Amino acid sequence: MEAKKAEDSLVVMNELVLPNDTNTFGNLMGGRLMYWMDIGAAMAAGKHCNKPCMTASVDNISFKNPIKLGNIVHIEVKLTRAFNTSMEVRIQVWGEDPLHKHKYASNEAYFTFVALDEHNRPSPVPALIPETDEEKEQYKAALRRRQLRLILGGKMSPDDATELKALFVQNAVGQNQQA
């Protein structure tokens, strides 16, 4: 299987927030946004592996700023890393007020997708090639995020999470040296 560039998985979606998409405060409903995020992430994962994919996990989704009725939602999705059968996907969301020409950050999240074979069983995926500095940093951090997901899901012992433990050991050493 030939490795693919992170940039090749890029998906950009735009949606207009209509009345049916909002809550009683005139803000985009979180569930509607998560639905759009999941669609974009599925498209990016599918572009990478050329196979059907399913959502395996969704990391914390924090809402920085609400997106209002009549605003435009910009969703940018790109793979950060491919493992054996799974892929981590980063989703960034911005809102845009088209009348005032103002674009603002709204959300960011990481979803994990698993590629499926013809029997709906996990299937190997191509490796990911990060090229830019940001892609390389996201690639490196994806292993720590994966280890945390596996620990929280009861699939990995914290003692086996070497990359994640190294992050805390480095921070503790740095703090002790500053003290």
Rank of each mutant, 00 (worst) to 15 (best):
E2F: 07
K4S: 12
S9Q: 00
S9K: 00
L10Q: 07
V11N: 02
V12E: 14
M13F: 08
E15Y: 07
E15C: 04
E15L: 02
V17L: 05
L18E: 07
P19D: 06
N20P: 09
D21S: 06
D21G: 04
N23A: 08
N23Y: 02
T24P: 10
F25C: 12
G26Q: 05
N27R: 07
L28Y: 01
G31M: 07
Y35K: 11
D38F: 01
A41P: 03
A42C: 08
M43D: 07
A44Y: 02
A45V: 10
A45T: 11
G46N: 14
H48R: 03
N50P: 12
K51T: 12
P52A: 09
M54E: 09
D59P: 06
D59T: 10
N60T: 11
I61C: 08
F63E: 05
N65M: 10
P66M: 07
P66K: 05
I67P: 02
I67G: 02
L69G: 05
G70D: 05
N71H: 14
H74M: 11
I75G: 01
E76C: 06
V77L: 04
L79T: 13
L79S: 09
L79Y: 01
T80I: 11
R81G: 04
N84A: 14
S86R: 00
M87L: 04
M87Q: 05
E88Y: 06
V89N: 03
I91F: 01
V93G: 00
G95F: 03
E96Q: 10
H100D: 09
A105W: 13
A105S: 15
S106L: 08
S106K: 07
N107A: 04
A109I: 06
Y110L: 11
A115N: 05
A115H: 04
L116Y: 06
H119R: 11
R121V: 14
S123W: 00
P126Y: 01
I129K: 01
P130W: 00
D133G: 14
E134P: 05
E134K: 09
E135Q: 13
K136F: 01
E137F: 10
Q138F: 15
Y139L: 10
K140L: 14
A141H: 12
R144Q: 15
Q147W: 00
Q147S: 01
I151K: 00
G153E: 10
K155M: 08
S157W: 01
S157R: 06
P158Y: 01
D160W: 00
E163L: 04
L164S: 07
F168E: 11
V169A: 12
Q170T: 15
V173K: 11
V173D: 10
N176C: 14
N176I: 09
Q177M: 15
